[in-house]
Amino acid sequence: MFDHQCTACEKRQLIFTSQVTSLTNTDHGIVVAFTCWCGAAQTLVTGSKATSTSKVTLAA
């Protein structure tokens, strides 16, 4: 699970693995596609090549 601020509803919520729809390796990092609790499709780029100013917390 990880936390994410939705661009549609603007709420910061925990995203669970059941909400993840795909993981794609790219030159910029790993693109995680998922569905927010509000139903909006969202993406997050993570990994060592990701450039982000927000802190992401991952848990097993």
Rank of each mutant, 00 (worst) to 15 (best):
L44P: 08
V56C: 05
A50F: 04
A33Q: 14
A33N: 15
S54D: 12
L23F: 10
A60C: 05
S18R: 01
V31I: 15
L23A: 00
Q13R: 09
T7I: 04
E10P: 04
V56R: 04
V56W: 02
C9M: 03
T46R: 07
V32N: 01
G29R: 09
L58D: 02
H28F: 14
C6N: 06
K55T: 13
K49G: 06
M1D: 10
T57Y: 11
I15L: 03
T24C: 12
L44K: 10
G29A: 00
K11C: 03
S18W: 05
L14K: 12
K55C: 05
A8W: 10
D3N: 14
G39C: 11
N25E: 14
K49L: 14
T26M: 01
Q42E: 15
V31Y: 05
T43S: 15
A40I: 08
K55R: 12
L58V: 02
K11L: 04
R12M: 06
G39A: 07
T53P: 07
T46W: 11
C38Q: 08
C36D: 11
I15T: 03
T43K: 14
T26K: 14
D3M: 07
Q13C: 07
M1L: 09
R12A: 03
R12V: 09
S54L: 11
A59I: 13
A60L: 12
H4T: 01
F2V: 00
T17N: 07
F34C: 05
T57Q: 08
F2P: 03
L14V: 12
G29I: 06
V20I: 15
Q5F: 03
Q13K: 11
N25P: 07
M1G: 13
S22C: 06
T35E: 11
G29K: 00
S54F: 01
V56K: 10
T21C: 06
T57W: 08
K11D: 07
V45W: 00
K55S: 11
T53Y: 11
T43R: 14
H4A: 00
A8H: 09
S48A: 00
T57V: 13
Q19G: 05
A33M: 10
A8V: 08
L14A: 12
M1H: 12
T17K: 09
V56S: 05
S18T: 06
A60D: 13
Q13I: 04
S48W: 05
C36A: 02
G47I: 00
F2D: 00
A33L: 09
L14F: 06
I30V: 15
F34I: 05
A33T: 10
C6Y: 04
Q5P: 01
T24E: 15
A41K: 13
K11T: 06
W37I: 09
A50K: 00
M1V: 09
C6Q: 03
V45L: 14
A33G: 04
F2M: 02
V56N: 03
G47T: 04
